[in-house]
């Protein structure tokens, strides 16, 4: 699989963080799509071919856990990494049980995130 063709969807309601992350990941050769809410993310997976989603937990409206559930129901094949500033041991385990591939807490070391992405996509 050629890395350059991999498409990542970033879902976070914090615009600034989303842009920063999108920039840095684009530089690493990924195709980046963004969504500001869970609903937007669900819409995106219908029309785009997405390999991996990086999903924030605390978002207004449909939160990350709900979104994770909904995406896994529709597209169990898409890998999802949860990335959150409001984590807890319970949420970590719950996410994994719902099918997340990893659970990382903000602020995340960019190298750790990259490693998680490449491990998840191997």
């Amino acid at each position: 699989m050629n890395k350059k063709l991999l498409t990542l969807l970033l879902v976070d309601d914090e615009e600034q963080f989303l842009n920063m992350l999108a920039n840095r990941l684009e530089q690493r050769g990924y195709v980046i799509l963004t969504a500001h809410s869970g609903d937007e993310a669900l819409f995106q997976i219908e029309k785009e071919d997405i390999n991996l989603i990086i999903l924030d937990i605390s978002m207004p409206g449909r939160d990350g856990m709900e979104t994770l559930k909904a995406i896994k129901q529709k597209r169990p094949d898409i890998q999802i990494i949860m990335l959150t500033g409001h984590g807890s041991i319970q949420k970590g385990i719950e996410s994994m049980k719902l099918g997340a591939s990893d659970f990382l807490e903000k602020p995340v070391d960019f190298n750790v995130l990259l490693e998680s992405i490449s491990n998840t996509l191997q």
């Binding site: 984590g87 970590g92 994994m96 990893d102 807490e105």
Partner: peptide, 13 residues
């Protein structure tokens, strides 16, 4: 919390 969560999540994997 963050370290414990990371350990448990990775052991879950």
């Amino acid at each position: 919390r963050t370290h414990t969560t990371s350990i448990i999540v990775n052991i879950f994997k």
